[in-house]
Every structure is written in C-alpha cells, then in structure tokens.
Design a protein around this nucleic acid. Structure first.
Lengths: 230, 230
DNA sequence: GGCTAATTCATACGTTTGTTTGAATCAAAC
DNA sequence: GTTTGATTCAAACAAACGTATGAATTAGCC
C-alpha cells in the first residue's frame, strides 16, 4: 500500500510521526544524516522500522521534513520581524542593529511558542549548509535565498553608500559567524579550546545575541569612519 | 600480516598512498566521511580495496590522516607568520590587520609550495568542525586550540582594553566567517543565492582575503570609537 | 638468475544498510 | 458485534558496507 504522503507537514496526525521527526532531529544533529541509520531513529523513537516507510516513504524524505519543519517557521519569523520593523518606523529610519536583530534573534529564540527540542535543531541549522543530501541542500538554499534577498535590501537602505558587491560577502560572513557561534555556544562545555581558556565564558542567550549583533554590525559597516551606534 | 602503520605521515613512500589520500580528500569534501565508501575511494584512486587496509588499516585512520596532512602545515604556517611578524616589528607595534592576515591567509594560500588539490581540502576545512568522527574531531580541535591560544594573545596585546571574555567570542565569530566565506567562495558558481544576485561577484583570492580581514577586523574592534585603520 | 621484502590484487566474510511486505492491532462507525 | 480504514509490528530482501585473507606481482639486492 502506498503511504499517504502529503508533500509537506500536513498535520501531526500521528504521535509516531512527530516522535520520528524528533528522534531523527536529535540523531542527525549529533551524527549527521549519513551517520544515522533509520534503525537508530526508530529505536530512539521507540517504534518500528516500518513506521518510517509508512509516514515518510524514504529516509531522504524524512530528512527533508526534519529540516522543513523548523526552518520554515524560523525564516517566516525573520521576515515577519523585518516587516513589523519597517511598518513601525519608516523603512529608511531603521538602524543596522535593529535589522540584524530581526535576522539573528529568531534562530536562537524560536522555541518561545513551546516548541521543544530546539537545541537539537539549532545544532542542525549550523550543519545544514554542508549537507550533501541534494534534496535537503536544495530546500535549505531556496529557503535561504528568500531571507537573504529581503535582508540585503533592508541593509542597503540604511547603508546606501555600501557597494552591493561588498554587501553580499559581508552578509555571507555574517551567516558564518552566526552559525559557528551558535554551534560553539550550544556545545560550549565540550569545546576543548573553550574549556582550556579560563577567560571564556558562556553567556546567556541574550548575551550571545548581543555579541553577535555587535560583531556583525561592526563588520558590515566596516570602513565607515565611526561605528554605526554606541 | 600487520600493516606497517607508522602513526602519522611518515613519508609518501608509495604513490598509491598519496593517491588514496587525494581521492579521499576529494570525496570527503563532496560527500562527507560517512557519505563516502572506501570502495568509492579506491575506485577514484584507481587502486584496490586492499590498499586501504595495507596503507592505513582502517577507514577511520585514513580520515585522520587526510585531515592531518593538510591541517598541520596550515597551522604551522599561521604560527610561523605570527612569529615572523612579532620578530620584525615589536610585539606591541603590530596592527590588528597584520595579525588577522597571518591567521587567514595561510588557509587560502597554502598551495604555494606546489601542493595540489588545495581546493578540495579548503572545502574540507570548513566542514571539519562538524565532523562526527571522534578521532578526527579530537585532532582538529587540538590543532585548533594551539592556534587560538597564540593568536588570542597577539590580539590582546594590540587591543589591551578588550575584555578577554569578549575576545573569545569574537575570535569564534571570526572563524565562522572565515570558513563559511571560504566555502561560499569555492562553490560560488553553485550557490543559488549567489547566482541569483546580480550584484554578487566572485573576487579573486586576494580580494576575498581583503574582504575577510576588513570584516573581521571591524568585528573584533567593535565598540571602539573609530575603525582601526583606513 | 635467484632470493627477499614490499606492494598490489581478486575474492570472500560477516554486518549493517534502506526498503518492502503482509499479517496483527487498534479506533471508530454502523 | 462486525466492518472498515488507519496504523503498527516482526520478518525478510537485496545491496552496500568495512574489513580480512592469501595468492600474484613488483622492485631491489646479492
């Protein structure tokens, strides 16, 4: 019998389905997609091998849904915050820090609505750009393209003197800093060069956001005679 | 017969050995370690399955040597350049940009002595922090710890007013920007949001280095009243 | 040429992989 | 209480996996 595969997250019509997604998310974030077998997943989810075939068909589609389930809400939230910002203050009146806050904060805060397992997915986010799985990669990059386009425009409006070619690379560096910083923050207690460094401290979530914004805002406005704020 | 496994790169006593390393490097960078089978590797290297057992024993040790072969020279070069810099000008007289140049340039330039396949390994570098293989991970982080320690001290000397806790995170962001930027630069022609953005251009190697240094130097000296140079 | 050690090769072993199947179980409707 | 459709389960499939083995082949030295 052909599994009833609605293309994307229809509804969590079965608890088994979300248990599988959670288990896969946790194991993928630890061992990667290729490094996780569907037997590991069903064992962690406390169910059976056939459940994967029934709910997702193949491992590849399961992987795709693992990413889609989290990535879509995060990116929707990013754009929604930017919209709200531009609606509240005039589009030209924004500060760079406000824009970066809308871009960065949803990635670290998207468990506010009660979503659990957010740590596991945050680990996944920083990994998703190097995922070799072609379906997953295409989805991630397509999602990403939309966010980049919106935020590029917003930054350009508050920094009209910045060449667009420069902006592309600075936004690329920003995302690298964001993902690697997030990864290091989440695994702080297991990162040897963090443990060995007595001066290194793990800030709370808000502290990390503040540091990220300070660093990337300065990087994006590099070359200007003075930092954009403070 | 037990394979003659000297612990680390003894000498490339056999052409087959380096052919295997090259092939593994290329395939690992494309598909990850778990996503690459040793059968793929020996096929790419034009040799036989037994060759891996003979030269490396196991796949895990092959993976370790793939990383060690390139990472050690790169990190040696980074520290050597910093040493040379501090020897030439007094340790206190350095600029932040000079220090970052010593940190960033060797990653992008380490094929000067004729090492080929450098592109493949550059792709690997940006991936090595999320490698689940425990032996590889331990090696990478240990290598990294030494570099971080040396460069943290150097930066602190030119920016004595920067709290050491801030420095740790800013250097973390720097490495994220470096690796993700490198990854994007190498795959520029395949990155959809780069192709779709008419303003995005792929600079030459020197241009990428210049942009990276400008961005990270500004980020590290964020909060100061004026940018450190230019 | 003949001996020795190093290297390559074809082949096989036991596991684990993703996927499939068909029967068992469950929930709700009639 | 029986029927129906959805869901779970144990079992099995072929294929691919990492590893091991022993015979061929090669290269260097006497």
């Amino acid at each position: 019998m052909i599994p009833p595969l609605a293309f994307f997250p229809t509804e969590s019509h079965a608890a088994t389905r979300v248990a599988l997604l959670d288990a896969a998310e946790r194991l993928f974030s630890k061992n990667g997609i290729e490094g996780t077998s569907i037997r590991d997943i069903v064992k962690e989810a406390g169910t059976n091998l056939g459940a994967i075939n029934y709910h997702f068909g193949t491992k590849d589609r399961l992987a795709l849904e693992v990413f889609a389930r989290r990535l879509e809400p995060v990116n929707r939230e990013r754009i929604a915050r930017l919209d709200a910002l531009e609606a509240a203050t005039g589009p030209g009146k924004l500060t760079l820090e406000q824009i970066l806050d809308a871009l960065i904060r949803p990635v670290l805060e998207f468990d506010e609505d009660g979503t659990k397992n957010c740590d596991d997915f945050m680990r996944l986010i920083s990994r998703c750009f190097q995922e070799p799985n072609p379906e997953v990669k295409r989805f991630v990059e397509q999602q990403f393209a939309e966010v980049v386009h919106r935020f590029d425009s917003a930054v350009l409006r508050v920094m009209p003197e910045l060449p667009a070619g420069d902006l592309f690379w600075r936004m690329t560096f920003l995302h690298g800093a964001l993902h690697h910083g997030l990864q290091t923050w989440l695994r702080f207690d297991q990162v040897p060069y963090a443990m060995l460094n007595p001066a290194a401290e793990k800030p709370d979530r808000e502290g990390l956001i503040r540091r990220l914004i300070a660093f990337t805002a300065a990087g994006i406005s590099a070359g200007k005679t003075s930092a954009s704020s403070q």
